[in-house]
Design a protein around this nucleic acid. Structure first.
Lengths: 239, 239
DNA sequence: GCCGCGCTTCGTCCACGGGCGAAGCGGGGC
DNA sequence: GCCCCGCTTCGCCCGTGGACGAAGCGCGGC
């Protein structure tokens, strides 16, 4: 039983993304971290009351989820779909915007980065290719399912499949705007990214400059990470 | 040399989609047809002056392209990226909107439909799977390239590869929100869809009811189409 | 050449919504 | 218990932008 997709409801969702302050907040949350209302207010360059109003709209609209902890309220993106929409809208914006200033992140940004909680860029796309090409994932209702081969392979890498299965979506596609190809999202995408960061196969790179809207989303691959991912899945993004 | 992706530019693009009248226009154009300003005004339920203003914003923003013919001005979506953004935003809206009215299109809509100018739904996803799984497409900069095997296979189906290559993008992914998987967009996606409709392997289904916001996007597969696509690419969506 | 039609431009109105300061609420710290 | 601090609510102001009617422009038809 799904709802009707009318122009009005689509416009309502798009309008939530169409305010500069809200867009700044969402872009900050797109880095994968949970942030307090105060931090988001500072990032968006507005006062606390305005930020509170924006965050109320975003949570009402189902784009942001809140988590109370003491006197702080931590905000994060609510779902895969929100991350996917931000990623795709970013691609549209880049395609549409005339080339004004040079793109300051260049190759490093396209090589590997976080898309909310999963891996993107050339690395994310190569990972998707490796997982499906080696038969670790098979088509399933609503995305992908892991095969017995995949279960063994991912287990050997130490990926927490149990945690991945607890997510609303186990594995589905997400558009990578810099590569124009799909990368892996869902619980499995998150579990793989978590494992890579946990084992220091990947590490977060510092922002290119202060106030960087892309935050700490850029990732660097360590020599060990390159070895492990190439050995297990044929993922090669160096050259 | 790419432009910078600031919150402000992303918000500006999203705001273009965030108006009910503009969203209605874009959703109508998402069916793949070129429509005149008058038709779009009627669809959006607004007067001619307002429609003209909205269309000017959409073309200025690079979301819609115009084509003069006599005293009519035909409007269509400007690029892959716009179609991809509409598709993804639709998915976000559906995920976010509480299930109000039942979804009236059900299985027929998920089985096969147009996403602007290429195939989507279970059929589009299966096609993508068939093309990549059989080695007809290989990873390439910015999407996919056709292999020699693929060139032969697509040639045998009568797909116009020369026309496909003239497009800005030859082949790239686009998110399918009903399947949560990638389907094929770009010049090749358009050429394949055109061939299928041309040979009556697929045909447009009438709107489920008048005023249907999804227009004539639903597609039906003919027995011959099912036979051809299964034989060439192992595409099976019947059961 | 004249009129008709599709579309755009201009001028005007008005409503929605985002911003802030002040005040209120609630959880922790001491 | 008191205060501090993070966040929200309230009340208000103001700017943006979307709507329409009237008028103008350009292409076609007769």
């Amino acid at each position: 039983m799904r709802a009707m997709l009318t122009p009005a409801t689509l416009a309502a969702t798009a309008a939530l993304l169409g305010d500069p302050a809200r867009a700044a907040m969402l872009q900050a949350l797109f880095g994968g971290e949970s942030l307090t209302a105060g931090e988001l207010a500072r990032i968006a360059g507005i006062g606390a009351p305005a930020a509170s109003a924006h965050l109320a709209k975003l949570t009402d609209g189902g784009l942001v989820a809140v988590h109370r902890q003491g006197r702080h309220r931590y905000h994060r993106l609510a779902s895969e779909e929100v991350a996917a929409a931000l990623e795709t809208l970013g691609g549209l914006t880049m395609a549409v915007a005339p080339a004004r200033r040079p793109w300051p992140h260049g190759e490093e940004f396209r090589t590997a980065r976080l898309c909310w909680d999963h891996l993107a860029g050339r690395l994310g796309v190569a990972l998707h290719q490796g997982l499906t090409g080696r038969g670790w994932l098979a088509p399933a209702e609503g995305g992908w399912a892991v095969t017995t081969t995949g279960e063994a392979g991912l287990g050997a890498l130490g990926v927490d499949l149990a945690a991945a299965r607890r997510a609303r979506r186990f594995a589905c596609d997400c558009m990578d705007w810099s590569e124009r190809r799909a990368h892996l999202a869902g619980g499995l995408g998150r579990a793989i990214a978590a494992r890579c960061l946990d084992r220091h196969w990947l590490h977060r790179l510092p922002p290119a400059r202060s106030g960087d809207p892309l935050g700490r989303r850029r990732l660097g691959l360590t020599p060990e990470g390159a070895r492990v991912l190439d050995g297990a899945l044929g993922v090669r993004i160096g050259a």
